[in-house]
């Protein structure tokens, strides 16, 4: 048996496999819950209710989706240009670190000035963190998969060192956490009384921005060209190294915004558990979305809902929360397979 590419997949070809994947994931979730000793369909209901059923649950899901959208966009932008950025986690922490460094009282600015300044500073930090590996790749041919992955650990250790040392909150009762942001640095809530903050709005705007860059600008055209056919792009006079660096700046900046919005929108300070691996989950999100920016928003919402819902279900039904991780892994496998099936058909050799 082998795969044969399909020249022009029809509508059904493109839509059915992902739907089947979604259905299969649901069934797998039911089976997992059953295996853990709960009533399968009740468990599925509990997941849905826990993720979307109440206003509080919905806001929780949207908040959880926010860093995933940023990280997913970051990965999608980079992967589209064949820059394999595995370092979104480090870039996220770089953004969070800069937000805390500048947002805890050094800059006496009013909110409308301070927040954009913090966001830009975070973007800059994330950009630098990816530009360095990108330059190593361009100049010396160092594999960026390795460098960006290792930077994750280095960054986490630096943050840990700072939180135990100079950045440690003197009022923190000895916990390794930073001082809280000043009030002017906090992102406001979108609606009064709801826990949803403007980080989510910013994430959706970022998705639009990425889509517009992709489709309407020369810069986005060149990034796509380098990713889809580097030799042809170079032949056509596109300066490939410059495009790679530009892509690195955009990708690193987007991931850093995840850290910025988590600190300024949600947590208010920096701790070592700021991110439960959002940077890595961003890869899952981007792959689920087939690297499409709007797909990233949907995939991030889906992943967040699974996490929040499975959390709540595990408490209600008394099954392990690991079900969420397994569900997500299954969803990814099913979706990657489904996306392959939209472009290839199986043939007996």
């Amino acid at each position: 048996m082998r795969l044969e590419p399909i020249a022009a997949p029809g509508f059904a070809r493109r839509v059915l496999p992902p739907l089947v994947a979604l259905g299969a994931t649901t069934l797998a979730g039911a089976a997992l819950a059953r295996f853990a000793g709960a009533d399968a369909f009740a468990a599925l209901g509990l997941i849905a209710k826990g993720a979307l059923g109440t206003k509080f649950a919905l806001m929780e899901t949207l908040n959880r989706a926010t860093p995933l959208i940023f990280a997913g966009l970051s990965v999608a932008v980079a992967f589209r240009a064949r820059l394999w950025n595995i370092g979104a986690e480090a870039q996220l922490y770089a953004g969070a670190l800069v937000t805390v460094l500048l947002g805890t009282g050094i800059l006496p600015l009013p909110s409308p000035l301070l927040i954009p300044v913090l966001a830009l500073a975070a973007i800059l930090a994330g950009a630098v963190l990816l530009i360095v590996p990108a330059m190593l790749k361009l100049r010396l041919g160092v594999d960026e998969v390795v460098t960006t992955l290792l930077v994750n650990f280095i960054m986490l250790l630096i943050v840990s060192m700072l939180l135990e040392g100079p950045l440690k909150d003197p009022m923190g009762m000895g916990w390794p956490k930073s001082a809280p942001l000043v009030h002017e640095a906090r992102l406001p809530r979108i609606l009064p009384g709801l826990r949803l903050h403007w980080g989510f709005g910013l994430a959706v705007i970022a998705a639009f921005a990425v889509w517009i860059i992709d489709r309407r600008t020369v810069a986005g055209f060149e990034m796509r060209a380098v990713g889809a056919g580097e030799a042809a792009a170079r032949f056509a006079g596109i300066r490939v190294p410059r495009v790679v660096l530009r892509t690195a700046a955009l990708s690193g900046g987007l991931a850093a915004l995840a850290g910025f919005s988590e600190v300024a929108g949600l947590k208010g300070n920096l701790t070592l558990d700021l991110s439960p691996g959002y940077g890595y989950t961003g890869i899952v999100v981007a792959m689920l979305a087939a690297l499409n920016p709007f797909g990233v928003v949907l995939a991030a919402l889906f992943v967040a809902a699974v996490f929040v819902g499975a959390d709540s279900m595990s408490r209600a039904a008394g099954v392990p929360t690991y079900i969420a991780d397994m569900l997500l892994a299954f969803a990814l496998l099913a979706m990657v397979l489904a996306l392959t099936m939209t472009r290839y058909r199986l043939r007996r050799a």
Partner: peptide
């Protein structure tokens, strides 16, 4: 490989 980008449209390749 050098002349065209397979996944790009005719338009995109025409103005590459």
């Amino acid at each position: 490989h050098a002349g065209t980008i397979g996944d790009f449209t005719l338009t995109e390749n025409a103005v590459l």
